[in-house]
Design a protein around this nucleic acid. Structure first.
Lengths: 241, 241
DNA sequence: AAGGATATTATGTCTACACATAAGGAGAAG
DNA sequence: CTTCTCCTTATGTGTAGACATAATATCCTT
């Protein structure tokens, strides 16, 4: 039940930083403040919007974080000449990605070995020559159809617990996320020709173009894991803003 | 070492939100606040750090923006179970990308037509059937070697000035950035087999895997341009954080 | 026990003010 | 004319306090 003591008391008309943001972004996209325009100083805007400079500051800071404004002390705030052109992709856990699309997720561990790291991996992760690693190959399916082939390497020296885990029920992806906290990451995307393994499991001809994401992860400076994710044919990585 | 009585000048003993951020992030990465941990409330942290709740709030908000913390009213702040996994790629203008790598940039316009938009483009940009568009094919080179093939479509109804431009000296990319302010964008990455055109200009065999970025842009709700960028063989899109 | 109103509480945000800091610009010195 | 100060100015950030809001927890009712 809505109690009505506010009727007489607080009209609640304060301008919020969101309103300021919206209005300023509007002025920019509408063209009245084109690229390069110097905006009024914060105090002036505060007067115009009828709020404090703090609120204006918050609004401008957030717009600036979006890459639309360029702010410098003394020089003032101006609309960026060239917007910061960046693409931002959410890379959720495969399971979440598949389930979000309304499909049923299933997982299969195809192989599991503990061995000495191959040379290319040592180089990539800056590991000693005799480093022991877990090597896994797993397939993630959406509604039974192959979705992603995961080729995962885990550094046992950094994460000895990984040696005791079989990764039969829980994929290494989810196991790692739950085990290792936040870490340093390097991600790269590329197009490659499908090798025999990918072709066999993802169901395209060998040599067909596959979208590949590679991710290397460190924790406290120590290399943890390197993974190569091959997507099924036709996969698109999309973002909108 | 306790609070050292500072000299008479006031060289700032105040705890900044950056210090708070650093310390909290440290506690998270160090493991003392593992995934799922509920952080002390802002007032408690303010007491601990010897600053106001405002400062703590700012720090926590920024960490939260990074996708590391999860904040809810009344429920409190907790370390996210699964970090928001996002990949952020800078997509500078090709010229900048090439010059940043220390190479010499050169540009060639391969073709230029004004025609009625093909069906697939009408669908993609939600254009009327008889929409007139500019169609360009351009090649961007780094040190003379093919780097990127640009296949660009511009909606003349939304941007009539484009009809008067020849795009011989300035690429459509740069021209557009200087002409159209901020806009809505959709970007997607994918792996494709090189068609005859891409193969011919980028110098790989037809059918080889190419990394393709597509970008569609709107301004004030109206479709402006659609571009398809095919990268030279071996191109990797990389990011680190 | 189930359901619904209400109290409690942690975060969200605004105001008002103060001082810090970077950097443009004017004026002085060479 | 050039270069170096120093002043001015716009943004950056901290303090203190108040009210707003969402969501959980509790208590009351049926």
């Amino acid at each position: 039940m809505a109690s009505e003591p506010r009727a007489a008391s607080a009209p609640k008309d304060r301008t919020t930083f969101r309103e300021v943001m919206a209005e300023i972004r509007h002025r920019i996209t509408e063209g009245s403040w084109g690229p390069g325009t110097l905006l009024p100083a914060e105090v002036a805007l505060a007067r115009e919007f009828g709020c404090t400079r703090t609120t204006i500051n918050r609004a401008l800071r957030e717009i600036s974080d979006l890459g639309i404004l360029d702010r410098r002390r003394k020089a003032g705030t101006r609309v960026r000449l060239a917007p910061r052109r960046e693409a931002r992709f959410e890379m959720p856990i495969v399971r979440a990605e598949i389930e979000k699309a309304g499909a049923t997720y299933s997982y299969t561990r195809l192989s599991h070995d503990i061995l000495t790291a191959p040379d290319w991996l040592c180089e990539r992760l800056r590991l000693p020559d005799d480093a022991q690693v877990v090597h896994l190959i797993c397939l993630h399916r959406a509604n039974g159809a192959p979705f992603q082939l995961e080729d995962r390497w885990i550094n046992l020296a950094a994460l000895p617990e990984a040696g005791a885990e079989a990764f039969v029920l829980v994929g290494p992806n989810e196991w790692l996320v739950a085990t290792v906290p936040y870490s340093e990451v390097e991600i790269s995307f590329q197009a490659e020709a499908a090798d025999a393994l990918a072709a066999a499991h993802l169901g395209h001809p060998s040599g067909a173009p596959v979208f590949v994401a590679e991710r290397t992860t460190w924790w406290k400076g120590a290399p943890i894991t390197h993974v190569r994710l091959c997507y099924r044919p036709g996969h698109r990585m999309t973002t909108h803003y």
